[in-house]
Amino acid sequence: MAGVVADRDFREGFVEMVPACVGIAPFGLVCGVGAAAAGASWWSALGMSAIIFSGAAQILAVQLLAAGAPLAVIVLTCFVAGLRFLMYSAAMAPYLRPLPQRWQQGLAFLLTDQAFAAAVRRFGAGHPPREAARHYLGGGAALWGSWQVTNLAGYFVGNLIPASWSLDFAVPLCFIALIAPQFRAMPSIVAAIASGCAVLALSGLPMKLNLIVAGTLGIVAGTLADLTKERWTRR
């Protein structure tokens, strides 16, 4: 382990991830504030950020817990919100195939939106798999570590941040940073419009069930748009 940490690729991956860590720091604070507001103990809050390690799932979980939603609804909603991990996993699989199983299992745990974006760039640039894997491990370690620090900071001192700063707005901004670049592809725009219209139209549904319905509709709409586009271009 010490050998890996001292490795050049690991350190590079760690350092290159620092700006992304700063970018998601407000998100981590908001998650910590949410856990405290839901009445979680500090070690439960830490357990949540350390084990779930997904801002979207953590926010949804604490909001639904605070609203008294049944366990099945909380689990299903968090799972659907995390469906994109399946896609990231499928995209990473060819790159990680040459690695030992232990590395695959470890790196999979660190698969997040930010780590995925960085890893696709690094592996895609043609670095040898083992070097790119150590680079990924460094970035993942930076993200995981800073996520625990910001979550705990939010838990303990988040309520000192004035409401007028609207820190909660950092959460949608983090997701906008991920979505907007995808709007170069027409089917992605269709997916977002369908999902967006549905989520607002169905906002009357209890326990955020509109999220599951809208997300599914958006995926179907995007896939259909893609198939249609292909048929048209083939003509």
Partner: peptide, 27 residues
Amino acid sequence: IPALLARAFRYVPAAMLTALVLPMVVV
């Protein structure tokens, strides 16, 4: 990975993240 599933995967982030974001912005 079945071709249709691979195709559907591409639109998971746009669909899911939009569903997450929009209520946070509009409401």
